[in-house]
Design a binder for these strands. Structure first.
Lengths: 344, 344
DNA sequence: GCTACCAATGTTAGCGCTACCATTTTTTTA
DNA sequence: TAAAAAAATGGTAGCGCTAACATTGGTAGC
């Protein structure tokens, strides 16, 4: 069966692991039947199936996923591209994706761009080359080559986190509205001199969108919206540092609108150490809705985004598309929620 | 070139994406030359290379990784298996792995077992079927079938987090010693009535090893080591709840040795709210060395494990093995550090 | 000038599986 | 009971690439 050439000229290394053919011989069936036992067990009679399963066990067969994917021109991979693994937000989105896709037998191919669009294009190229069943990427902004590649691609593409003009499917929320909403709340609470403080606001343009929403709301009330930025990624220490810088540069500040909960939490914990009362001396708010924000005293006023749900919903949309079920909508706004603590 | 059968009987769908052959025709070379431009550019003359690169661009070629892996019987995948994505510890390990492997052009295949050994075996099977270049898994305990599969496998296998009798490579630390070390410190501080409190201690047996180290050290001093366990995963709220339970069941407790920093942090934050002084009324310590533990007041006394380093070192070992470089050692003890805060 | 050698490129045969169609066996219907 | 329909199984080509060997052409050595 495997030795049809009598000339015997060439030899390939051949992993000499058992193949479908070996299992088939052992079970006394054809290899396509073994393939069916693995891929669509219901299309094989129970007695045959048991015979094959026993043979698989006996020869210690390990399925070659690569060969299967080449022959069928598709893998059960879902390409997932995020800009960072240091930011809990994306971790939670990945959890939502992973747990949902796992149920349907899909495997995630995880890529990290470090906020580089060029790296994103490279990853997209590689992932398409793996015959992925779908691709999930973060945000709506991509390199031109990346965009056209994805538009030409015939399989589901989901752009997550943000809402707007998408390539295919879109699951997210309006960051502009979120920033606007928080600014509105702060004005309602009587705060007028408010500083926006964030990190990595070039790459992470969603934070910038929140700032723009914030700024525009304040502008409507005739108020300036100073912005302070830092280059490194957010951490608790930087939050404390940011608090001090704000008080230094804008000593009359009444509230700080932080770009994320990590900074805001760091600021609150540091304020406690310095004896600065929150919100008495200065109010603080954040964005994300991290558990730590609700575990500290005072509890953080923030905007909670449904991170795990974004992943779950994106995955459900993809599965529906793959299985040919109708979609509720191509664009899903998961919204956000104003979580009012005592910090602002 | 692609139409050698004159009988014209069958037709396969064929993705009709451009292939190596199309690029070759466009560039006026053979397909193996195109393959060489992609895989070992230095083995092709510069002029030829430029011609081919231009042709790739012109036809919009996307490399088929699946076909390449089948032909070469290897992929640039590294299988990574962790028990949970909700625990920051594993996220940080993954970061260390990912950033190191990325530099060498390897892609991570991420699997999550949810602390199920059966699921681990399934994942190992799948990942071997993808012709992965190496496999990194968590812990030393596996199903028998999984063990024998990995032992038979000819490529690098790294078991991380824990030290002991490993299949191949091993990078981690002694959890027993870590528990022992903390118990020793607590005794040195004069604490005698110490409760150990943890979560998910069946699946997460590394926490149990820490408890055993703790218990044995106390036993040497002739002291009992009560243990309280909870089934759900650790979070801040559960830490606060645990604090209350401990005080209820063992009102004379002097210190709580928490199985991880999340619980310990939750307990400290909750104590602050209740007006319980730490360490005045009760001392608290943890394990992991999370940033939040050092951001709160009082700072958490804990054992810091080098999580990102475990990932990085494991990856470096794998790369060395793949590239045929000698290894420093097959087993690497990354150690741990007693971080003394004010909480105990 | 002839051989020896090396670098660059080409030819061919699979890698192990599944799609496609064909054939055989079983079940249902007339 | 025979014919028709359905279910189960089989034969074979080919998915797109690279390993292994073959060939070509240029260059150095004597």
């Amino acid at each position: 069966m495997s030795n049809k050439n009598s000339t015997e000229r060439r030899r390939r290394k051949g992993s000499n692991n058992p193949t479908l053919g070996d299992v088939a011989k052992e079970a006394g069936v054809s290899s396509i039947t073994v393939s069916r036992v693995l891929n669509s067990p219901d299309s094989v009679r129970a007695t045959t199936r048991h015979k094959v399963e026993a043979a698989i066990e006996r020869v210690g067969y390990v399925r070659n996923m690569v060969a299967g994917s080449l022959a069928s021109a598709s893998s059960r991979f879902i390409a997932v591209i995020v800009p960072s693994l240091s930011n809990v937000v994306f971790i939670e989105v990945i959890q939502g994706l992973q747990s949902t896709f796992e149920k349907y037998g899909y495997q995630i191919l995880l890529g990290n761009t470090d906020y580089s669009m060029q790296r994103e294009t490279e990853l997209v190229n590689t992932f398409l080359g793996w015959s992925s069943s779908a691709l999930v990427t973060t945000g709506l902004r991509h390199e031109e080559g990346c965009n056209s590649l994805l538009k030409r691609w015939q399989k589901p593409v989901v752009e997550i986190m943000e809402l707007g003009n998408a390539i295919d499917l879109n699951v997210g929320l309006s960051h502009y509205d979120a920033g606007h909403c928080m600014a509105d709340y702060l004005l309602g609470q009587g705060y007028r001199r408010v500083v926006f403080a964030g990190t990595q606001m070039d790459g992470n343009y969603r934070a910038r969108l929140r700032y723009e929403g914030h700024r525009d709301r304040l502008a409507k009330a005739g108020i300036e919206a100073p912005l302070l930025e830092w280059a490194p990624a957010s951490d608790f220490e930087l939050g404390g540092h940011a608090l001090e810088r704000v008080l230094e540069r804008h000593p009359d500040t009444q509230a700080i609108h932080f770009a994320d909960d990590v900074l805001a939490t760091g600021a609150i914990l540091h304020a406690t150490r310095l004896g600065i009362r929150i919100p008495g001396d200065i109010a603080v708010c954040g964005f994300t809705g991290l558990p730590i924000g609700q575990a500290i005293t005072p509890r953080l006023t923030t905007i909670s985004s449904p991170r795990e749900a974004i992943g779950r919903i994106a995955a459900e949309q993809v599965i529906a598309r793959i299985e040919g079920r109708p979609l509720d909508a191509e664009q899903i706004d998961v919204g956000f929620e104003l979580t009012i603590g005592e910090s602002a």
